[in-house]
Design a protein around this nucleic acid. Structure first.
Lengths: 142, 142
DNA sequence: TTACATCCTCTAGCTACTGTAGGTTCAAGT
DNA sequence: ACTTGAACCTACAGTAGCTAGAGGATGTAA
């Protein structure tokens, strides 16, 4: 049986995060000692590892919830999981494109900084005037 | 004089966002009509455009605050602005690297999906076991 | 004058956690 | 058996950067 602290260490999670996952129903309510402390088994360890790994791949908690449901029902066809992964892949690719444009713009800003004072600063100038942009970057969420 | 709605339209901002910027001190308190409605001039339009453009380039509000301070003091040397931009560029480059690794992993997951049912699904399997990863991806914030 | 779009304040909610306060329990050492 | 100290407990507040809604006031054109 594992304490919450041990579980946290094994999965690279903070203790509070585990309690948070329990609160939102992503982790089950575990057994308790007489004194009221949580104790976990291997099933919970696996489940948390799954959650953490999915998070590292950028899946939002909602998607992870769906994936866990699928994982709990081995008979269901897997194209749903595939679709969730494809959706995530698409998102990642969109983010990459956006970051590429931003990087180009930032590189240009930094390169053109004259090193004088703020009045002539190209960095500030570029920020002041969107029309100077070489690239399009129209949504804000990165 | 511009109403808040016009200002919002001109800068591609939501009305609530402008009020939020005022609340956190990023935008100044504007003049009001007798009835209490906000009215803006061109200085505010420029300032908001600056803020929005900086946000689109991924600068956090704190950095934008610093940039606005610099922008308000044309005599200060510009290396501070340059440094903020460089910091942002570095962040963007880190994010790109991370996304590249994630994309590789997701592509592999999707490619190997057998199309059977959840029990044999590679997507779920890869998520279950981090050791199957081909790439390292250890922080969560994307 | 009337209609109605737009404005106002205030509050709560979103994601995914993280931190803190104040108190309890567990396990190891003596 | 007793003490000590790390780890646990709950509950609440805070983070970034907005966004949405309620319920009511104002501005403007016909």
């Amino acid at each position: 049986m594992l304490t919450i602290g041990t579980l946290a260490k094994r999965t690279g999670t903070k203790v509070q995060t585990i309690r948070y996952y329990e609160q939102i129903g992503l982790m089950p309510e575990p057994g308790r000692t007489e004194g009221g402390q949580r104790r976990y088994g291997n099933a919970e360890l696996d489940r948390l590892a799954f959650i953490r790994h999915s998070r590292q791949l950028g899946f939002p908690l909602d998607a992870i919830r769906e994936l866990l449901d699928l994982s709990d029902a081995p008979d269901r066809p897997c194209h749903e999981a595939d679709e969730i992964a494809r959706r995530q892949l698409k998102l990642v690719e969109q983010r990459m494109e956006r970051l590429k444009a931003l990087r180009a713009e930032l590189k240009r800003m930094v390169k053109e900084c004259s090193g004088g004072n703020a009045a002539q600063c190209r960095v500030l100038e570029v920020l002041r005037d969107h029309s100077e942009c070489l690239t399009e970057h129209d949504q804000i969420g990165i």
